[in-house]
């Protein structure tokens, strides 16, 4: 799967979609594919202040566990509650129904630290 345009990416395989002063965060198709069947996602609490590239949770598959780093800092506005009962959504639709959490941006300049779809593609296919 090619990386969707219009999103920004981190080296740790998270994507972020910035809309005004908020941003939606998820993990990339490459990430879900290498983890395998995801069985649980531990997300930050709503209201929590998180800083860019900080460890904010964990993604568990049947036999692997991976730290979740946020590609962007701010305050957690909302988390994807549906993942509690349907973690498979991250495998099925990592850029859509499998989104993880929504952030109110702390600093719009942080996006300059992220990668474009084309640049991320290079990392993911290395």
């Amino acid at each position: 799967m090619a990386q969707p345009e219009g999103l920004l990416y981190s080296k740790e395989h998270e994507w972020v979609k910035i809309e005004g002063d908020t941003a939606l965060v998820g993990i990339t198709d490459y990430a879900q594919n290498s983890l395998g069947d995801i069985v649980y996602v531990e997300l930050p609490r709503v209201g929590k202040a998180i800083s860019q590239f900080g460890n904010v949770g964990v993604v568990e598959s049947v036999k692997a566990v991976s730290d979740l780093f946020t590609p962007i800092g701010g305050e957690v506005l909302e988390i994807n509650d549906t993942l509690e009962n349907d973690p498979a959504a991250v495998n099925r639709d990592p850029y859509g129904a499998g989104w993880l959490f929504k952030v109110k941006l702390a600093d719009a300049n942080e996006k300059n630290n992220l990668l474009s779809a084309a640049d991320y593609e290079k990392i993911a296919t290395e």
Binding site: D37, V39, Y40, E60, V62, K63, P87, A88
Partner: peptide
Amino acid sequence: VDETRAAR
């Protein structure tokens, strides 16, 4: 055994 089902 379906381990994914067991864990999900």
